[in-house]
Design a binder for these strands. Structure first.
Lengths: 135, 135, 135, 135
DNA sequence: GTGGTCTAGACCACA
DNA sequence: GTGGTCTAGACCACG
């Protein structure tokens, strides 16, 4: 299900957070859908249960999941997310990265392409059209 | 010269890397210009010299600086940078962040504004055409 | 009858305890009144019977209910409650929370409003003088 | 320094969170003051370092602390706290508890006393007057 | 020295 | 069965 790089500088739990966040953002995981149990993922990925739990807890703190003792972890609806401040941070980060990319030679055309791809990969809130570029 | 936030989760050396990178990108620091010595920065910022050195080393690894033993650290020219791979990474990262921002409610209009700001900021400083720095 | 929030961190049995306690406190459930049977509540709320039982047991331990084998669960009269110690605990807890709220910026005015609301809500329902229920 | 009850239903890390929060609220711990290191507390309380860290991390998430790798954990200034939503929750909780206390026999006089104590224990932001009831 | 991550494995609470 | 807590102990990153 996931590809983890244990030798990476990025902690395993963070890699997990990113992967799962991506699945939620691209709506591959729908709101209220159940995630694999900690123990299942743990054995599938041969990663300690505590590490999986750490990732799930982090996603819960960020508002992407909710957890029910005895039942499992579930995808949170977007409404339950504290997104104002987060958005401001994200915009600043994006601007920084684009500035760096331009310095390294990103052309206006490249940016347009990138911009176009994003619009068509992630098409609003409730698309029947899941013709996404990502598999 | 710099504003460091000791409270931030981001390590100090990383904050330094980001700040210096920003000065280079916005061309406040020009190619082949000399950076302040480790000792000077260290005492100015009241930061451990090791930490400054760590930041300089990191920037050198990323191709933003080159160092000459006994003389100091200098801004690298863009031509000397390994930017193909870096650019690919950056584009992927930017796309990921924009996708996340859209999920959190960023509108098309917001994106246009952000896009405009980036173009405007970078054009103003150094060139009237960023579309052909490379290839 | 009840609204349970499955997404809450709070276990379902605890949510049940709180709701029922509230009904007793606001005297919507009167002393010696019978509560719905475990099976009924269970099927109405689509909650595991064990969970309902757990809540009833908890309320019995706290003195809010008494149960008669083969007949059901009933609201306990206030006289039968061990409230001295409980009151002391509650007062300590309330003081702690108010102190925290003040630290987070609660003003004296806010407190007065809150104070007023409590008095008003409780007076309206059952008595014109709450100052002498006990001792 | 702290009194922990390992047999309590309340997890150790939560007991720690509560104790430390209290020290911060009563301003016994001042902003930017350093907390005991994880390992020191760990050995003093004969509690596993991970458990202490869990408590510190929780306090950081709630905005009461900030942590610097390699340096330690520090008390956060109040300005850095997300207190709007928190305050609303606290007020609701306080009202609930007062209602319960009144049901159990809390008199108006008791409430006045309690109210008075709080005001004089926690006297605004910057008191020279530390004549607090709490030791 | 500090905090951060991860593992192996135990035991408890909830549904 | 699920998640939550805790321990013992190892190793890494930071300053």
């Amino acid at each position: 299900m996931f590809q983890l790089d244990v030798r990476s500088r990025k902690p395993i739990y963070e890699q997990l957070v990113d992967k799962i966040k991506e699945l939620i953002i691209t709506q591959i995981l729908k709101p209220d859908e159940q995630l694999p149990s900690i123990r299942m993922l743990s054995s599938q990925l041969t990663v300690n249960p505590n590490t999986i739990q750490r990732a799930y807890r982090e996603l819960e703190n960020q508002g992407y999941l909710y957890s029910i003792k005895g039942k499992g972890n579930f995808v949170a609806a977007i409404e339950h997310m504290p997104n104002e401040q987060k958005l401001t941070e994200l915009k600043a980060e994006i601007k920084k990265l684009i500035a760096e990319a331009i310095y390294l030679g990103l052309t206006k055309g490249d940016l347009d392409v990138l911009f176009f791809e994003v619009n068509h990969t992630n098409k609003g809130d409730n698309s029947d059209d899941t013709s996404s570029i990502r598999k």
